[in-house]
C-alpha cells in the first residue's frame, strides 16, 4: 500500500485527524489573531486608498482561498476518479462549502472595497467577474452532489463536474480579462503589485496562513462528520436487517 492509500483509509483518517484538528484550529486562531492585530493596528494606511486598504487583509486571502479550495477539490476529484478513494470524494464534498464561503467573502469584501475606491458597489472588473463565475461553479457542484438519492452516484457525477469546472476556470479568467480590456481599458487600481510594503505583507501572509489552517480545520470537522454518517448508515442498515 502506498502512503496515500494509508492516509485515505477512513479508519486511519479518524485517528490522525483527531490530533491534526486541534493543531490546525489553534494555528488558525493564532495566525488570524496576530494577523488582525498587525493589520488593524500596526500596519500603515495606504497613501492612495487610506484606511480602506485594511479590507485587503480579509479580501485578498479570501480570494486566494477561493481558488485554492477549488484546486484542492479538483485534485481530490481526480484522486477519487482515478484511484477510487472514497475518502477523496468525501473530501471534495467537505471542501465545497468552505470554498463557497471564502468566495462569498471575497465578493462581499471586494464590493465593500469597491464602493469607496471606484464609487460603485460593483464593477464588471475581470477579477470580480471571474470570482462570481467561480461562485456559481461552487453552487453547481454542491447542487449536483446533493441531487442524487444515491450518494455514491452524486459523488461521482459531482467529481466529474469539479474537473470540468477546473479546466474551465482559466478559460473564463482569460476570456473575462480580454473582455474587460475591451470595455474599460485599465481603469482599475492594481492591488497586488510586487512593491507591497513589508508592514502590509506580513499581516497579509499571516491572514492567508490563518485562513488556510481554518479551512483545514473545518474540512476535517466536516469529513469526520461524513465518515461517521456513513458508519451510522451502515449500522442502521445492519440493525434493520437484524430485526
Amino acid at each position: 500500500m502506498s502512503w496515500w492509500h494509508r492516509l485515505a483509509s477512513p479508519t486511519r483518517f479518524m485517528s490522525y485527524s483527531a490530533w491534526v484538528l486541534p493543531i490546525a484550529g489553534w494555528l488558525a486562531a493564532g495566525c488570524i489573531g496576530v494577523g488582525l492585530a498587525l493589520g488593524l493596528f500596526a500596519s500603515p494606511a495606504d497613501y492612495q486608498q487610506g484606511e480602506t486598504v485594511r479590507i485587503m487583509y480579509v479580501h485578498v486571502p479570501a480570494a486566494w482561498m477561493a481558488l485554492f479550495c477549488y484546486s484542492a477539490m479538483a485534485a481530490s476529484s481526480a484522486g477519487y476518479l482515478i484511484w477510487k478513494q472514497p475518502l477523496a470524494e468525501l473530501a471534495t464534498r467537505a471542501t465545497a462549502p468552505v470554498g463557497a464561503c471564502f468566495t462569498a467573502i471575497a465578493l462581499v469584501s471586494g464590493s465593500l472595497w469597491g464602493q469607496p475606491m471606484w464609487g460603485t458597489w460593483w464593477v464588471w472588473d475581470a477579477r470580480l467577474t471571474s470570482a462570481l463565475v467561480l461562485f456559481f461553479l461552487y453552487l453547481g457542484y454542491m447542487a449536483l452532489a446533493e441531487a442524487f438519492d444515491d450518494p455514491t452516484r452524486g459523488g461521482k457525477a459531482a467529481s466529474i463536474l469539479a474537473l470540468v469546472g477546473f479546466v474551465n476556470v482559466p478559460i473564463v479568467k482569460f476570456s473575462v480579462d480580454w473582455w474587460n480590456t475591451l470595455h474599460q481599458p485599465a481603469s482599475v487600481v492594481k492591488l497586488d503589485g510586487p512593491a507591497i510594503d513589508p508592514a502590509m505583507l506580513v499581516p497579509l501572509l499571516l491572514m492567508a496562513a490563518g485562513f488556510t489552517f481554518y479551512a483545514v480545520a473545518v474540512v476535517i470537522l466536516r469529513l469526520r462528520a461524513m465518515v461517521l454518517e456513513r458508519k451510522i448508515q451502515a449500522l442502521q442498515r445492519q440493525l434493520a436487517e437484524a430485526r
Binding site: 456559481f136 453547481g140 447542487a143 469546472g165 474551465n168
Partner: peptide, 10 residues
Amino acid sequence: ALLVLPLAVP
C-alpha cells in the same frame, strides 16, 4: 441550467 450556464460564459 445551473451547471451549464457558468461554463458558457466564454
